[in-house]
Design a protein around this nucleic acid. Structure first.
Lengths: 165, 165
DNA sequence: TGCCATCTAATGGGATATCATGGAAATTTA
DNA sequence: TAAATTTCCATGATATCCCATTAGATGGCA
């Protein structure tokens, strides 16, 4: 059974930029790295580009590969493809967990999402996000509000049941 | 035949947040975990997000996977998908029964549903709910009232038979 | 039909392992 | 060689595991 990124948790970011990745997420990263063996530490990808810029997004090797393959289907010299490659390939970086399950966020990455000394990790199924706590709270609150304002036939939960499975 | 969650029962929550899951529910959780074997303990998912916030909802791996798969069909970066992932993946967590059939509710989870030292488990077919006892009584009472106020053609019992199966 | 043996369930307490985190040492790199 | 990284070690907090106890249900059997 494929594990997905689930749950939220708050972690300290120390002076060197080190943060613990939630233990539950490590298991998912291990599963999602084809080259991972018990004796190594899993690799994965952090994307900082894209429309948002509010948060970082972490992908397992397996799931970023899916995205890469979709992009590769676009016409080679199309503007769409260039855009996506800029966001997903250019503005991203490989990372590796260290022995204690931490990664280091460079000053650049911290600056992009406005992080000081705390970060929130949020599971999003095939990926996870890293947020500055206050921004995250705001995001969740806004989502709740906009959810409540939806009409019945805009409700994404109800739309789900219309999909064939 | 797929077992369903049925019945209600009251359980103590100890100082560590541990609660026994009703024995009948354990059987359903075992059946609903593809990785479960006699030598392990079943995994499942508890969702605490969504608009409700009054109770926790427990899903078997099989049934949450159905939901996850539907969500994965939505366009990867759509607002709908993001919303659903936030409610279903971010605001949820994997859990595993321990040797004695208990789970632990973190302080966070207890706080979300307002639980002190007792919890009510309520079977809901494909999922179950965990409630603070007083809130649960209130919910049940309210449901009775609003059911009685329905006109004949709003009666869900009567609508049932109009569905094709 | 009353008694006892056995089993499962629910719950509590203590021991143990894992996790998150800080700091120092070693290594790289500019 | 100074700065910055990475590796290694240390520690407290938390969560997990393991064992013990009790109550109730079940079933056998005289």
């Amino acid at each position: 059974m494929i594990k997905r990124f689930r749950g939220e948790s708050l972690h300290k970011v120390d002076a060197k930029g080190r943060v613990s990745v939630p233990a539950a997420f490590r298991r998912v990263l291990e599963d999602g790295d084809p080259d991972f063996s018990g004796s190594s530490y899993p690799n994965f990808v952090v994307v900082y580009g894209g429309v948002r810029g509010n948060c970082l997004e972490g992908y397992t090797i397996t799931s970023i590969t899916k995205v890469d393959n979709l992009i590769s289907k676009l016409p080679r010299f199309s503007r769409d493809r260039e855009m996506l490659e800029r966001f997903i390939n250019t503005q991203s970086t490989y990372m590796q967990l260290d022995e204690t399950g931490r990664i280091v966020l460079s000053p650049r990455l911290k600056e992009i999402i406005g992080i000081q000394d705390e970060a929130i990790f949020a599971g999003m199924g095939e990926k996870f996000q890293i947020w500055e706590p206050k921004k995250y709270q705001k995001e969740v609150a806004e989502l709740d509000v906009s959810f409540k304002s939806l009409s019945e036939n805009e409700n994404p939960f109800l739309k789900l049941d219309q999909l064939q499975d």
